[in-house]
Write a protein that binds this DNA or RNA. Sequence first.
DNA 1: TGCTTTTTGTTCATGCTTGAACGATACTGT
DNA 2: ACAGTATCGTTCAAGCATGAACAAAAAGCA
Lengths: 150, 150
Amino acid sequence: MNKKQDLPWDNPRFKNWIAVVQAEKAIVRALTKALQPFDLKIGQLDVLMNLYRHPGMSQHDVARKLLVGRSNITMLLPQLERQGLLRREGDAKDKRVLRLYLTEDGEDVLLKALKVYTELIDTVMANSSPAQCDALGDQMRRISEMLKEA
Amino acid sequence: MNKKQDLPWDNPRFKNWIAVVQAEKAIVRALTKALQPFDLKIGQLDVLMNLYRHPGMSQHDVARKLLVGRSNITMLLPQLERQGLLRREGDAKDKRVLRLYLTEDGEDVLLKALKVYTELIDTVMANSSPAQCDALGDQMRRISEMLKEA
DNA sequence: TGCTTTTTGTTCATGCTTGAACGATACTGT
DNA sequence: ACAGTATCGTTCAAGCATGAACAAAAAGCA
């Protein structure tokens, strides 16, 4: 048993998944540097991105969307609020929840940061056609679906 | 300018890359839990995996391969050494470098952990054919190549 | 050979992330 | 109405990762 044959590196799914992890790490490092001029961490950018598309999300919603703990969001927000990029408003009906909204400055910074992000991705994926990217995304979304149920 | 049209979410590369990030986060969480019985963190598993394939790597080599800082490896090793999963030997010719080798226990634990890892990946990517996985991996390896030069 | 520069691994302070415990608020079922 | 349960956000301690500064060793070079 356990000959070279059944080593994970010969498993197409596993072998190629490792490549995904490697690429993701590489981009995280590149993006972290690229965001320094904006004084933004990737986690903060993630929050802004979600608020742009879904204004009024609660902190709990944001945490679940980003797959991080609620406390993470709590610790993340004060700096963004101090920078004037977003504001928190207590929900009128449910006094527990705080709803988050981008300020104009926040939207401004977000769009500039997104430009940098998009250019980075466009560069490193220049050799992938839109169709290939869609196929890629489909596989990834299936993975997320599989794990959402757990 | 900046109409809805040129929002990043309409950019195929960007949009689908976001799906990659989401899937990667989801798997990291699942894998972290799956590795708890082995008392292994993902970073530690990464080290063991590389040593299995390339025995005698230096700490610097490992760090570069894993895209982490050298200090990260320094902080990671004592626990693995205490658990008896690997051993460090000073290089004879270059007294600065420490070469890393898996012990038999280390290889044993690694193979068991890899089995869990592989099963997880096989499950969540069950809907991707080997050919699709290869296409996926090719795109990812191209990304890593692009960023290696930077 | 000597002197300078690189490289390797370590240490340390900093910041990020996590999960558990908590108070406040809302919901549920009787 | 009310007792028990669940949810939201916060706090806190612990574990990790990072990068700068450092000592030892090696390499480059005159």
